[in-house]
Design a protein around this nucleic acid. Structure first.
Lengths: 188, 188, 188, 188
DNA sequence: AATGAATGAGGTTTCATTCAT
DNA sequence: GATGAATGAAACCTCATTCAT
């Protein structure tokens, strides 16, 4: 009984997430809960039960991307070459945002703001991994002095923003990323 | 006669702009027209007469900054040293946005979107000046190859975005700007 | 479950229609939706949910009258005497409009104009029935030649208009109707 | 001095009337004073000075038609044949309204309603003339008994309304007028 | 747990009229 | 007399959220 209900609920949740993902993919980042409900063919109440807030829905949508980023970051932290690690880390932070706009919304926001526990945990874990990766590069003198971990985080988010403006031709991603990497590399 | 009347209208317009500026300074970028009216102590109709649209108000607020930027850009285009010109240009584009968030909103948006004629003219003029400045640097081989004028425009807007995230301590502006300048400079 | 809920919604809809009918009866044909909401003691949103447009409300109000007219027209089309059928038809078209001003509004308007599907269907059905009734009279040579179905429709609406002007004493309805009937009858 | 001013004022008044006539001819019967002012290239205040009310403007626009109708009515009253007089009168009442929609608005309204003195005088004069014309026909037994002067007035306005509905092909005016004339003629 | 109708605050917009200049 | 900016009530409509069923 309860089991069946839970299965139903889980199915609903999945359907909601799928619908929301479609909307985001279609360029609708507003994710108004009424809207999501209608397109998912459910009552608004159901949506509010699963995601009491737009933010909660966004975090749920972003979760996979965040998890994937953590994997990337772990790989980066295990890389032999410190600078290669930095490059892997930043590239991952960049491309995960590009692939999932809701994740960009979450990650380019300060840590506070009524985030769910999962998001907060993810964020902290990412902070730790980034510290590792960037710390190695700093110790090796490969990272331009004066740049904090937050600086790099923000700069990558800035690149994401830059890429969102205007059309999306050619190799902008790679081009902008190289600009950033060259800009943050120590020395000359 | 008409002059005096217009003086009144101009005074109202100025008061509206001042009120709106206060709101922006207080962090309220939404600039809802009825809100502006209430805070300025005027009837809604008056606001709508002067600024039929939020966009119109934003453009009016941004106009001074845009004009100032054009001056900066002209100065940059006259600078003896090509690279110094680039630096002046980008620094101006950055700091004018930081000083006036409404200007950032206008300038980080594509050229189309129902912009007023003044804004469009400004934008075109800026495009010309930027072409001059960046063209010189390109010819001198000082600019990283492959970067278009638009790329640089977008990258600066990205830096603005990066700076808006999180608190605003220390010399972040200078730091990020240097990262950008180093990243876009040609060669080694 | 859903049934009960819908019962509620239906009750609200009915209350709205009743309120609107009172307003019309009181001579207020403007039927502004916020007004209706206030008088019905409901939120505006509720009204807009049921009737997204003044037009939708008017059509709903007119619907009963329209249905009744169709019954009348069917009866007229089955009458043995062709001319009696014409008289029944026109009298019904006249009196239904007098009884329900919103119906007069709908029926005296061209067929196009964003009408709901119900209204359009009614209108078409009425057109068919009228064609039958008037066709019989024409074939029997009882209808003044040269008058189209539309002419008669318009003339009846004109009589409605004539009756709306000035006070409403005596037997004006009957008097004007007889003028019309004599005017459209063939021959001498 | 005052003379010059008056000349100016008169010119303004004429320009306003001309503008309003254009608007009416273009199908805009709303005649919002703001609108008229803008199109006439004058301040609203000027319009309000000349025509304190939409109604005042409408009456001014209708005045010529009303005067012309009085001439027609006088001619009708002098006609040898009583019934021909009736026909002239009603035809004039009909066609003057068709030619000048503002006149239709005035004449199809009850006599009271804050009408200006000119309009009231016109209306009374028309009433007298109509009484003469129709009285003669009644005495000759040519007018269907039971029809009052007001009835005929209203019926003609009804025909105007009927003609306004739908497109305007062929000889609708003549057709509807004949229906009316046959309908109101006495006997069989 | 699911539903979706109801809510109503609050935004945008129009317009007839006034009144300072 | 002429001007037209100012007014603000009031219409219109949307939307996030609640809650009865």
């Amino acid at each position: 009984m309860t089991a069946t209900l839970r299965a139903d609920a889980a199915r609903n949740r999945d359907r909601l997430l799928a619908t929301a993902r479609l909307m985001v993919a279609a360029g609708d980042l507003s994710l108004q809960l009424n809207d999501v409900a209608r397109r998912a063919g459910m009552g608004v109440g159901t949506v509010y039960r699963h995601f009491p807030t737009r933010r909660a829905l966004v975090e749920a949508l972003a979760d996979d991307a965040f998890t994937a980023l953590l994997d990337d970051a772990r790989a980066a932290s295990r890389h032999d070459d410190a600078w290669a690690g930095v490059e892997l880390l930043l590239r991952a932070l960049l491309t995960r945002q590009l692939a999932e706009p809701t994740f960009a919304e979450i990650i380019s926001t300060g840590p506070d703001l009524d985030a769910g526990p999962g998001t907060t945990a993810h964020r902290e874990e990412f902070g730790r991994l980034a510290r590792t990766v960037l710390g190695r590069a700093r110790q090796g003198g490969e990272l331009r002095p004066g740049l904090t971990d937050e600086d790099l985080h923000h700069l990558v988010c800035g690149i994401v923003f830059a890429l969102r403006i205007g059309a999306e031709p050619d190799g902008r991603v790679e081009r902008y990323l190289q600009v950033l990497l060259d800009g943050i590399r120590a020395g000359r």
